[in-house]
Design a protein around this nucleic acid. Structure first.
Lengths: 197, 197
DNA sequence: TTGCCAAATGGAGGCGCCCCCGCTTAGCGT
DNA sequence: ACGCTAAGCGGGGGCGCCTCCATTTGGCAA
């Protein structure tokens, strides 16, 4: 993530860019594919010119908004690990994962249009998310607070499954219960020596 | 071709529809994919409302314009056979075939956009054109003015080849010379008994 | 032929997209 | 701290798309 070699965008421009992306997720989720770009600009508090300069086409905006959601989800990991124990960090992060899945579901129509235009917005997203999950689980393993016989890819599959069935906004409670269930199962099994000292 | 079961469209509406399709071929050829629909309406001498009622989307218009070219090409056969000997009819029709190929080439950008939108504008067109060619060649065979050992599909391949290499408007002369060459080769071979009495 | 009515028309108008350019401001050099 | 410069802003305006509906017209029935 982050913008590579290109000259690094002025601070205010970066701020605007992010406000636009956040507004885009909101509005595309609400209005679907044919949301008004003007409205996104208005909600982001920028002029339409600014929106258009950052994202020349509707598709570019949708794609960037989606990628930004993935990036935000993944970038959250270090902060979580820095402020709470690994098992709590993992628990908190799975909540964010559901937020992400809900946003993705809401933008489904818009994303489909991007794909139809010949772009794959999902490139790398799976790897990035699995990488984030891996960091969290490694930290948990190092601290001895999660069992060691479940691989991150298994956990990813479980999370994907929960997202698949329970990512609708009104299923939030169910999603959280399923997450708790899964995370409880991830605790070290007594008498199997996963715990430290 | 022709509009099937649907109620059969008032005479003036049918006329307008055809004017629009003709204008569409012209304008899409000239301006490519992003021709202004307004201009097509203007050139067709109708209001934009009429255009839009007949063809709800840009893609529908492009597709209909292309299909109409195929239909016109094929529908020309009976008229040609009714007004001239079969060999001359075939010769005249091959000219029209090149007209069609030139129009198709000009609309290539627009047609590509239709395909990208998930519609196949070419469905049936090959069969229709081969059918037309078949009628002409059958008539020629019956009259004994063309050789009988060349099948319509062979002839179609030859025409397609000529179109492929010489359909640009500025290659018209070359295309006609190639057609003449091919048609000359289609005459009955002396001493093989294809000719009558 | 005439009258009727549903089909069809067309162009004005609303709306959103996109571009442009005069103004603002971040960020650096002194 | 202060200017300078160019990156960035934003919203007004032009333009094309599409809709809507008052008006026209084709086609049928009497």
């Amino acid at each position: 993530m982050a913008r590579a070699a290109e000259r690094p965008l002025r601070a205010d421009a970066q701020r605007n860019r992010e406000k636009i992306l956040a507004a885009a997720v909101r509005v595309f989720t609400e209005d679907g594919l044919d949301a008004h770009l003007e409205r996104i600009a208005r909600e982001a508090g920028v002029g339409s010119g600014t929106l258009y300069r950052n994202f020349p086409t509707r598709e570019a905006l949708i794609e960037a908004a989606y990628r930004n959601e993935v990036a935000r989800l993944c970038d959250a990991v270090p902060g979580l690990l820095a402020t709470m124990p690994p098992d709590q960090a993992l628990r908190a992060w799975t909540r964010r994962f559901i937020d992400y899945a809900t946003a993705k579901l809401g933008m489904a129509d818009a994303l489909r249009a991007v794909i139809a235009a010949g772009v794959n917005p999902y490139a790398d997203s799976r790897e990035m998310i699995q990488g984030a999950l891996c960091s969290l689980m490694d930290a948990g393993t190092a601290a001895g607070v999660i069992r060691t016989d479940i691989r991150p890819t298994d956990m990813f599959a479980a999370l994907a499954g929960i997202a698949l069935t329970s990512a609708q906004p009104d299923q939030r409670d169910q999603a959280e219960r399923l997450l708790d269930l899964t995370l409880d199962g991830l605790r070290p099994v007594a008498g199997r020596g996963a715990g430290g000292s």
